[in-house]
Design a protein around this nucleic acid. Structure first.
Lengths: 213, 213
DNA sequence: TGTCCGTATTTTGTATACAATGTACATTTA
DNA sequence: TAAATGTACATTGTATACAAAATACGGACA
Protein backbone atom coordinates (compact mmCIF):
# COMPACT_ATOMS: atom_id res chain seq x y z
CA UNK A 1 0.00 0.00 0.00
CA UNK A 2 0.92 3.63 -0.57
CA UNK A 3 3.60 2.75 -3.06
CA UNK A 4 5.93 5.30 -4.52
CA UNK A 5 5.86 6.35 -8.15
CA UNK A 6 7.12 3.45 -10.28
CA UNK A 7 10.22 4.75 -11.98
CA UNK A 8 8.68 4.06 -15.40
CA UNK A 9 5.56 6.21 -15.16
CA UNK A 10 7.31 9.33 -13.83
CA UNK A 11 10.86 9.62 -15.12
CA UNK A 12 11.25 13.24 -14.04
CA UNK A 13 11.13 12.73 -10.29
CA UNK A 14 14.43 13.43 -8.58
CA UNK A 15 15.07 9.89 -7.49
CA UNK A 16 13.65 7.64 -4.86
CA UNK A 17 15.86 8.92 -2.04
CA UNK A 18 14.40 12.41 -2.06
CA UNK A 19 10.85 11.16 -2.47
CA UNK A 20 11.22 8.86 0.51
CA UNK A 21 12.97 11.51 2.59
CA UNK A 22 10.19 13.99 1.81
CA UNK A 23 7.51 11.50 2.78
CA UNK A 24 9.08 10.55 6.08
CA UNK A 25 10.00 14.14 6.92
CA UNK A 26 6.43 15.23 6.40
CA UNK A 27 5.13 12.33 8.45
CA UNK A 28 7.38 13.38 11.34
CA UNK A 29 6.63 17.10 11.12
CA UNK A 30 2.91 16.48 10.94
CA UNK A 31 3.08 14.10 13.88
CA UNK A 32 2.01 10.99 12.01
CA UNK A 33 5.15 9.34 13.41
CA UNK A 34 5.73 9.97 17.09
CA UNK A 35 8.93 10.93 18.88
CA UNK A 36 11.06 7.91 19.73
CA UNK A 37 9.34 5.67 17.21
CA UNK A 38 11.78 3.34 15.53
CA UNK A 39 12.27 3.28 11.76
CA UNK A 40 13.04 -0.08 10.20
CA UNK A 41 14.71 -0.16 6.80
CA UNK A 42 13.04 -3.29 5.46
CA UNK A 43 9.60 -2.26 6.71
CA UNK A 44 9.90 1.13 5.03
CA UNK A 45 11.18 -0.54 1.87
CA UNK A 46 8.13 -2.78 1.75
CA UNK A 47 5.80 0.11 2.55
CA UNK A 48 7.13 2.20 -0.33
CA UNK A 49 7.69 -0.74 -2.66
CA UNK A 50 11.43 -0.18 -3.01
CA UNK A 51 14.61 -1.84 -1.79
CA UNK A 52 16.56 -0.94 1.32
CA UNK A 53 19.15 1.04 -0.60
CA UNK A 54 17.23 4.27 -1.28
CA UNK A 55 15.50 3.99 2.09
CA UNK A 56 18.88 3.84 3.76
CA UNK A 57 20.07 6.93 1.92
CA UNK A 58 16.92 8.80 2.86
CA UNK A 59 17.27 7.89 6.52
CA UNK A 60 20.89 9.03 6.53
CA UNK A 61 19.82 12.37 5.10
CA UNK A 62 17.12 12.79 7.75
CA UNK A 63 19.75 11.94 10.34
CA UNK A 64 21.83 14.88 9.14
CA UNK A 65 18.76 17.11 9.28
CA UNK A 66 18.18 16.24 12.92
CA UNK A 67 14.82 14.65 12.15
CA UNK A 68 16.12 11.27 13.27
CA UNK A 69 18.67 10.15 15.82
CA UNK A 70 20.29 6.87 16.76
CA UNK A 71 23.45 4.87 17.22
CA UNK A 72 25.35 2.93 14.54
CA UNK A 73 24.51 -0.76 14.25
CA UNK A 74 21.39 -0.23 16.28
CA UNK A 75 18.94 1.80 14.27
CA UNK A 76 17.28 5.16 13.85
CA UNK A 77 14.26 6.67 15.59
CA UNK A 78 12.43 9.97 15.51
CA UNK A 79 14.55 12.51 17.38
CA UNK A 80 13.21 14.11 20.50
CA UNK A 81 12.89 17.89 20.63
CA UNK A 82 16.07 19.64 21.76
CA UNK A 83 16.18 21.70 24.94
CA UNK A 84 14.49 25.08 25.11
CA UNK A 85 17.83 26.86 25.07
CA UNK A 86 18.86 24.88 22.03
CA UNK A 87 15.66 25.83 20.24
CA UNK A 88 16.50 29.47 20.84
CA UNK A 89 19.88 28.94 19.22
CA UNK A 90 18.22 27.37 16.20
CA UNK A 91 15.85 30.33 16.01
CA UNK A 92 18.73 32.77 16.16
CA UNK A 93 20.50 30.94 13.33
CA UNK A 94 17.34 30.93 11.25
CA UNK A 95 17.03 34.69 11.75
CA UNK A 96 20.62 35.14 10.60
CA UNK A 97 20.08 33.05 7.49
CA UNK A 98 16.73 34.41 6.40
CA UNK A 99 17.70 38.02 7.09
CA UNK A 100 20.79 37.61 4.96
CA UNK A 101 18.66 36.08 2.21
CA UNK A 102 16.38 39.11 2.16
CA UNK A 103 19.32 41.48 2.01
CA UNK A 104 20.69 39.75 -1.07
CA UNK A 105 17.58 40.08 -3.21
CA UNK A 106 15.49 42.91 -1.78
CA UNK A 107 16.19 45.32 -4.62
CA UNK A 108 16.01 43.04 -7.63
CA UNK A 109 12.78 41.09 -7.46
CA UNK A 110 10.83 40.34 -10.64
CA UNK A 111 7.15 39.78 -11.31
CA UNK A 112 7.88 36.08 -11.57
CA UNK A 113 9.21 36.09 -8.01
CA UNK A 114 6.06 37.69 -6.65
CA UNK A 115 3.92 35.32 -8.71
CA UNK A 116 5.58 32.38 -6.97
CA UNK A 117 5.04 33.89 -3.55
CA UNK A 118 1.43 34.70 -4.37
CA UNK A 119 0.88 31.05 -5.21
CA UNK A 120 2.25 30.01 -1.83
CA UNK A 121 0.24 32.67 -0.05
CA UNK A 122 -2.94 31.57 -1.78
CA UNK A 123 -2.44 28.03 -0.54
CA UNK A 124 -1.79 29.40 2.92
CA UNK A 125 -4.99 31.47 2.76
CA UNK A 126 -7.02 28.36 2.02
CA UNK A 127 -5.30 26.50 4.84
CA UNK A 128 -5.98 29.33 7.29
CA UNK A 129 -9.63 29.55 6.26
CA UNK A 130 -10.00 25.84 6.97
CA UNK A 131 -8.03 26.18 10.21
CA UNK A 132 -5.97 23.20 9.01
CA UNK A 133 -2.91 23.75 11.16
CA UNK A 134 -0.97 20.87 9.66
CA UNK A 135 -1.38 22.35 6.20
CA UNK A 136 -0.60 25.81 7.59
CA UNK A 137 2.66 24.43 8.92
CA UNK A 138 3.57 22.98 5.53
CA UNK A 139 2.83 26.28 3.80
CA UNK A 140 4.78 28.17 6.44
CA UNK A 141 7.85 26.01 5.87
CA UNK A 142 7.51 26.35 2.11
CA UNK A 143 7.19 30.12 2.50
CA UNK A 144 10.39 30.50 4.46
CA UNK A 145 12.23 27.99 2.28
CA UNK A 146 11.27 29.96 -0.81
CA UNK A 147 12.82 33.08 0.70
CA UNK A 148 16.07 31.27 1.45
CA UNK A 149 16.07 29.67 -1.98
CA UNK A 150 15.59 33.03 -3.69
CA UNK A 151 19.02 34.12 -2.46
CA UNK A 152 20.55 31.64 -4.93
CA UNK A 153 23.26 30.73 -2.46
CA UNK A 154 23.86 27.00 -2.47
CA UNK A 155 25.25 26.87 1.06
CA UNK A 156 22.55 29.07 2.53
CA UNK A 157 19.77 26.71 1.51
CA UNK A 158 21.81 23.70 2.52
CA UNK A 159 22.44 25.02 6.03
CA UNK A 160 18.84 26.11 6.41
CA UNK A 161 17.66 22.63 5.50
CA UNK A 162 20.01 21.19 8.09
CA UNK A 163 18.46 23.12 10.95
CA UNK A 164 14.82 23.86 10.18
CA UNK A 165 13.65 20.33 10.98
CA UNK A 166 15.07 20.40 14.47
CA UNK A 167 12.43 22.70 15.93
CA UNK A 168 9.22 21.05 14.89
CA UNK A 169 7.00 22.24 17.71
CA UNK A 170 7.02 25.74 16.27
CA UNK A 171 5.34 24.78 13.05
CA UNK A 172 2.91 22.40 14.68
CA UNK A 173 1.86 23.99 17.94
CA UNK A 174 2.88 27.63 18.15
CA UNK A 175 0.44 28.72 15.49
CA UNK A 176 -2.45 26.91 17.04
CA UNK A 177 -1.68 28.27 20.49
CA UNK A 178 -0.95 31.89 19.69
CA UNK A 179 -3.43 32.67 16.94
CA UNK A 180 -7.11 32.44 17.87
CA UNK A 181 -7.87 33.82 14.42
CA UNK A 182 -5.95 31.74 11.89
CA UNK A 183 -6.33 34.35 9.18
CA UNK A 184 -3.91 36.54 11.09
CA UNK A 185 -1.17 34.10 10.15
CA UNK A 186 -2.00 34.60 6.49
CA UNK A 187 -2.13 38.37 6.88
CA UNK A 188 1.27 38.56 8.50
CA UNK A 189 2.88 36.58 5.69
CA UNK A 190 1.23 38.84 3.13
CA UNK A 191 2.73 41.75 5.03
CA UNK A 192 6.22 40.30 4.63
CA UNK A 193 5.88 39.99 0.86
CA UNK A 194 4.41 43.50 0.68
CA UNK A 195 7.43 44.83 2.50
CA UNK A 196 9.60 43.26 -0.20
CA UNK A 197 7.80 45.40 -2.78
CA UNK A 198 8.59 48.55 -0.85
CA UNK A 199 12.28 47.74 -0.89
CA UNK A 200 12.82 48.81 2.71
CA UNK A 201 15.38 46.29 3.98
CA UNK A 202 15.07 47.15 7.64
CA UNK A 203 11.32 46.88 7.68
CA UNK A 204 11.34 43.63 5.73
CA UNK A 205 13.93 42.04 8.00
CA UNK A 206 12.09 43.21 11.10
CA UNK A 207 8.79 41.72 9.95
CA UNK A 208 10.48 38.49 8.97
CA UNK A 209 12.37 38.09 12.23
CA UNK A 210 9.12 38.62 14.08
CA UNK A 211 7.69 35.56 12.34
CA UNK A 212 10.66 33.38 13.30
CA UNK A 213 10.13 32.49 16.91
CA UNK B 1 47.71 1.15 -1.98
CA UNK B 2 46.69 3.15 1.09
CA UNK B 3 44.06 0.63 2.05
CA UNK B 4 41.71 1.15 4.94
CA UNK B 5 41.82 -0.97 8.07
CA UNK B 6 40.60 -4.48 7.24
CA UNK B 7 37.53 -5.01 9.33
CA UNK B 8 39.14 -8.00 11.02
CA UNK B 9 42.21 -6.39 12.53
CA UNK B 10 40.39 -3.42 14.06
CA UNK B 11 36.86 -4.27 15.05
CA UNK B 12 36.36 -1.13 17.10
CA UNK B 13 36.47 1.43 14.32
CA UNK B 14 33.20 3.20 13.78
CA UNK B 15 32.54 1.74 10.40
CA UNK B 16 33.92 2.32 6.96
CA UNK B 17 31.69 5.27 6.12
CA UNK B 18 33.11 7.52 8.80
CA UNK B 19 36.68 6.44 8.11
CA UNK B 20 36.30 7.22 4.42
CA UNK B 21 34.51 10.51 5.11
CA UNK B 22 37.28 11.56 7.50
CA UNK B 23 39.98 10.72 4.97
CA UNK B 24 38.37 12.61 2.11
CA UNK B 25 37.41 15.55 4.32
CA UNK B 26 40.97 15.90 5.49
CA UNK B 27 42.28 15.61 1.94
CA UNK B 28 40.00 18.46 0.88
CA UNK B 29 40.70 20.71 3.86
CA UNK B 30 44.44 20.22 3.51
CA UNK B 31 44.26 20.90 -0.20
CA UNK B 32 45.39 17.49 -1.37
CA UNK B 33 42.26 17.44 -3.55
CA UNK B 34 41.64 20.66 -5.45
CA UNK B 35 38.40 22.59 -5.87
CA UNK B 36 36.30 21.28 -8.73
CA UNK B 37 38.06 17.93 -8.78
CA UNK B 38 35.66 15.11 -9.51
CA UNK B 39 35.21 12.17 -7.12
CA UNK B 40 34.50 8.80 -8.68
CA UNK B 41 32.86 6.15 -6.54
CA UNK B 42 34.56 3.12 -8.05
CA UNK B 43 37.99 4.77 -8.07
CA UNK B 44 37.65 5.69 -4.39
CA UNK B 45 36.42 2.19 -3.64
CA UNK B 46 39.50 0.66 -5.26
CA UNK B 47 41.78 3.20 -3.56
CA UNK B 48 40.44 2.32 -0.12
CA UNK B 49 39.93 -1.36 -0.85
CA UNK B 50 36.19 -1.32 -0.19
CA UNK B 51 33.04 -1.49 -2.24
CA UNK B 52 31.06 1.43 -3.60
CA UNK B 53 28.45 1.22 -0.85
CA UNK B 54 30.34 2.80 2.07
CA UNK B 55 32.06 5.21 -0.33
CA UNK B 56 28.66 6.38 -1.52
CA UNK B 57 27.46 6.93 2.03
CA UNK B 58 30.59 8.90 2.86
CA UNK B 59 30.20 11.11 -0.21
CA UNK B 60 26.58 11.81 0.66
CA UNK B 61 27.64 12.88 4.13
CA UNK B 62 30.30 15.22 2.75
CA UNK B 63 27.65 16.62 0.42
CA UNK B 64 25.55 17.55 3.44
CA UNK B 65 28.59 19.15 5.05
CA UNK B 66 29.14 21.36 2.03
CA UNK B 67 32.53 19.82 1.32
CA UNK B 68 31.27 18.46 -2.00
CA UNK B 69 28.71 19.64 -4.51
CA UNK B 70 27.10 18.23 -7.60
CA UNK B 71 23.93 17.29 -9.42
CA UNK B 72 22.06 13.98 -9.21
CA UNK B 73 22.91 11.40 -11.84
CA UNK B 74 26.04 13.33 -12.72
CA UNK B 75 28.47 13.08 -9.86
CA UNK B 76 30.16 14.92 -7.04
CA UNK B 77 33.14 17.26 -7.01
CA UNK B 78 34.93 19.37 -4.43
CA UNK B 79 32.78 22.41 -3.69
CA UNK B 80 34.08 25.84 -4.51
CA UNK B 81 34.32 28.39 -1.72
CA UNK B 82 31.11 30.32 -1.14
CA UNK B 83 30.93 34.07 -1.65
CA UNK B 84 32.57 36.43 0.84
CA UNK B 85 29.20 37.51 2.17
CA UNK B 86 28.23 33.89 2.64
CA UNK B 87 31.44 33.21 4.55
CA UNK B 88 30.53 36.01 6.91
CA UNK B 89 27.18 34.38 7.54
CA UNK B 90 28.88 31.09 8.33
CA UNK B 91 31.21 32.90 10.70
CA UNK B 92 28.27 34.56 12.45
CA UNK B 93 26.57 31.20 12.88
CA UNK B 94 29.74 29.66 14.27
CA UNK B 95 29.98 32.50 16.79
CA UNK B 96 26.39 31.86 17.85
CA UNK B 97 26.98 28.16 18.30
CA UNK B 98 30.31 28.26 20.08
CA UNK B 99 29.29 31.12 22.35
CA UNK B 100 26.22 29.18 23.38
CA UNK B 101 28.36 26.14 24.05
CA UNK B 102 30.61 28.11 26.40
CA UNK B 103 27.62 29.50 28.25
CA UNK B 104 26.28 26.02 28.93
CA UNK B 105 29.40 24.67 30.63
CA UNK B 106 31.43 27.64 31.86
CA UNK B 107 30.68 27.05 35.53
CA UNK B 108 30.91 23.29 35.77
CA UNK B 109 34.19 22.19 34.24
CA UNK B 110 36.15 19.33 35.76
CA UNK B 111 39.84 18.51 35.82
CA UNK B 112 39.18 15.88 33.17
CA UNK B 113 37.85 18.55 30.83
CA UNK B 114 40.96 20.67 31.19
CA UNK B 115 43.15 17.61 30.77
CA UNK B 116 41.55 16.96 27.39
CA UNK B 117 42.03 20.55 26.31
CA UNK B 118 45.63 20.50 27.49
CA UNK B 119 46.26 17.50 25.27
CA UNK B 120 44.90 19.35 22.27
CA UNK B 121 46.85 22.47 23.15
CA UNK B 122 50.04 20.45 23.47
CA UNK B 123 49.60 19.08 19.98
CA UNK B 124 48.93 22.60 18.76
CA UNK B 125 52.09 23.86 20.46
CA UNK B 126 54.17 21.30 18.60
CA UNK B 127 52.49 22.22 15.33
CA UNK B 128 53.11 25.91 15.88
CA UNK B 129 56.75 25.32 16.75
CA UNK B 130 57.18 23.45 13.48
CA UNK B 131 55.20 26.11 11.58
CA UNK B 132 53.18 23.22 10.11
CA UNK B 133 50.10 25.18 9.10
CA UNK B 134 48.21 22.14 7.87
CA UNK B 135 48.62 20.48 11.26
CA UNK B 136 47.79 23.78 12.97
CA UNK B 137 44.54 23.86 10.99
CA UNK B 138 43.66 20.34 12.11
CA UNK B 139 44.37 21.18 15.75
CA UNK B 140 42.36 24.38 15.43
CA UNK B 141 39.33 22.51 14.12
CA UNK B 142 39.68 19.88 16.85
CA UNK B 143 39.95 22.63 19.45
CA UNK B 144 36.72 24.32 18.42
CA UNK B 145 34.93 21.01 17.92
CA UNK B 146 35.89 19.97 21.46
CA UNK B 147 34.28 23.12 22.81
CA UNK B 148 31.06 22.47 20.93
CA UNK B 149 31.09 18.83 21.95
CA UNK B 150 31.52 19.74 25.63
CA UNK B 151 28.06 21.32 25.60
CA UNK B 152 26.61 17.79 25.32
CA UNK B 153 23.90 19.04 22.98
CA UNK B 154 23.38 16.58 20.18
CA UNK B 155 21.96 19.15 17.76
CA UNK B 156 24.63 21.74 18.48
CA UNK B 157 27.45 19.48 17.37
CA UNK B 158 25.46 18.25 14.40
CA UNK B 159 24.78 21.78 13.14
CA UNK B 160 28.37 22.83 13.74
CA UNK B 161 29.61 19.89 11.70
CA UNK B 162 27.27 20.89 8.90
CA UNK B 163 28.77 24.35 8.53
CA UNK B 164 32.41 24.28 9.60
CA UNK B 165 33.63 22.63 6.40
CA UNK B 166 32.18 25.30 4.17
CA UNK B 167 34.77 27.94 4.99
CA UNK B 168 38.01 26.11 4.44
CA UNK B 169 40.22 29.05 3.53
CA UNK B 170 40.15 30.24 7.12
CA UNK B 171 41.85 27.20 8.51
CA UNK B 172 44.29 26.90 5.65
CA UNK B 173 45.32 30.43 4.76
CA UNK B 174 44.26 32.94 7.39
CA UNK B 175 46.66 31.65 9.99
CA UNK B 176 49.58 31.67 7.61
CA UNK B 177 48.80 35.18 6.39
CA UNK B 178 48.01 36.92 9.66
CA UNK B 179 50.47 35.35 12.07
CA UNK B 180 54.16 35.98 11.36
CA UNK B 181 54.91 34.27 14.67
CA UNK B 182 53.01 30.98 14.70
CA UNK B 183 53.35 30.63 18.46
CA UNK B 184 50.91 33.50 18.86
CA UNK B 185 48.21 31.15 17.58
CA UNK B 186 49.04 28.72 20.36
CA UNK B 187 49.13 31.47 22.97
CA UNK B 188 45.70 32.77 22.01
CA UNK B 189 44.13 29.33 22.33
CA UNK B 190 45.74 28.89 25.72
CA UNK B 191 44.18 32.21 26.66
CA UNK B 192 40.73 30.93 25.81
CA UNK B 193 41.08 27.87 28.04
CA UNK B 194 42.50 30.03 30.81
CA UNK B 195 39.43 32.25 30.61
CA UNK B 196 37.31 29.13 31.17
CA UNK B 197 39.07 28.60 34.48
CA UNK B 198 38.22 32.12 35.59
CA UNK B 199 34.55 31.49 34.96
CA UNK B 200 33.97 34.92 33.42
CA UNK B 201 31.46 34.20 30.66
CA UNK B 202 31.74 37.54 28.93
CA UNK B 203 35.51 37.44 28.73
CA UNK B 204 35.54 33.84 27.53
CA UNK B 205 32.97 34.49 24.83
CA UNK B 206 34.77 37.64 23.72
CA UNK B 207 38.09 35.83 23.37
CA UNK B 208 36.49 32.94 21.55
CA UNK B 209 34.58 35.12 19.09
CA UNK B 210 37.80 36.91 18.32
CA UNK B 211 39.30 33.62 17.15
CA UNK B 212 36.35 32.90 14.84
CA UNK B 213 36.88 35.08 11.82
C1' DT C 1 31.65 22.82 -42.91
C1' DG C 2 28.40 22.95 -39.39
C1' DT C 3 24.49 20.91 -37.13
C1' DC C 4 21.75 17.25 -35.75
C1' DC C 5 20.99 12.70 -34.27
C1' DG C 6 22.03 7.97 -32.82
C1' DT C 7 25.10 4.92 -30.53
C1' DA C 8 28.71 3.59 -27.20
C1' DT C 9 30.75 4.39 -22.91
C1' DT C 10 30.98 5.98 -18.43
C1' DT C 11 28.92 6.84 -14.06
C1' DT C 12 25.35 7.06 -10.93
C1' DG C 13 20.91 4.85 -9.01
C1' DT C 14 18.69 0.68 -7.40
C1' DA C 15 18.05 -4.21 -6.14
C1' DT C 16 19.57 -8.30 -3.99
C1' DA C 17 22.72 -11.35 -1.28
C1' DC C 18 25.89 -11.97 2.38
C1' DA C 19 28.49 -10.67 6.77
C1' DA C 20 28.73 -8.69 11.25
C1' DT C 21 26.90 -6.48 15.07
C1' DG C 22 23.57 -5.82 18.76
C1' DT C 23 19.65 -7.35 21.44
C1' DA C 24 16.62 -10.48 23.83
C1' DC C 25 15.59 -14.62 25.83
C1' DA C 26 16.40 -18.99 27.74
C1' DT C 27 19.42 -22.00 30.22
C1' DT C 28 22.73 -23.00 33.52
C1' DT C 29 25.03 -22.46 37.84
C1' DA C 30 26.30 -20.58 42.26
C1' DT D 1 16.48 -16.63 43.25
C1' DA D 2 19.85 -13.83 40.95
C1' DA D 3 23.59 -13.39 38.02
C1' DA D 4 26.10 -14.91 34.16
C1' DT D 5 26.57 -16.91 29.77
C1' DG D 6 25.44 -18.89 25.56
C1' DT D 7 22.42 -19.07 21.65
C1' DA D 8 18.92 -17.58 18.44
C1' DC D 9 16.86 -13.73 16.27
C1' DA D 10 16.42 -9.20 14.35
C1' DT D 11 18.65 -5.38 12.21
C1' DT D 12 22.22 -2.80 10.36
C1' DG D 13 26.71 -2.74 7.51
C1' DT D 14 28.95 -4.22 3.29
C1' DA D 15 29.64 -6.41 -1.26
C1' DT D 16 28.15 -7.45 -5.78
C1' DA D 17 25.04 -7.35 -9.85
C1' DC D 18 21.85 -5.04 -12.69
C1' DA D 19 19.18 -0.82 -14.55
C1' DA D 20 18.96 3.88 -15.93
C1' DA D 21 20.64 8.29 -16.78
C1' DA D 22 24.02 11.46 -18.70
C1' DT D 23 27.91 12.49 -21.37
C1' DA D 24 31.05 11.95 -25.37
C1' DC D 25 31.95 10.66 -29.71
C1' DG D 26 31.25 9.76 -34.58
C1' DG D 27 28.65 9.64 -38.72
C1' DA D 28 24.92 11.23 -41.70
C1' DC D 29 22.88 14.94 -43.89
C1' DA D 30 21.86 19.61 -45.26
Amino acid sequence: MSQLQPSVSSPLVHGLREQIADRIRNDVICGRIGVGERLNEVQLGEKFGVSRTPVRAALQQLLHEGILEGRPNVGLKVARQPSVAMCQVVTEIRRTIESFAVETFIGRLTDADFAQWNAILERMRVACLARDFVLIAECDIEFHRSIVRRAHERDLESIWNSIVGRVRSHFRDTHQDQYPDAMEIYAEHVGIIDSFKGGDVKKAVALLKEKIC
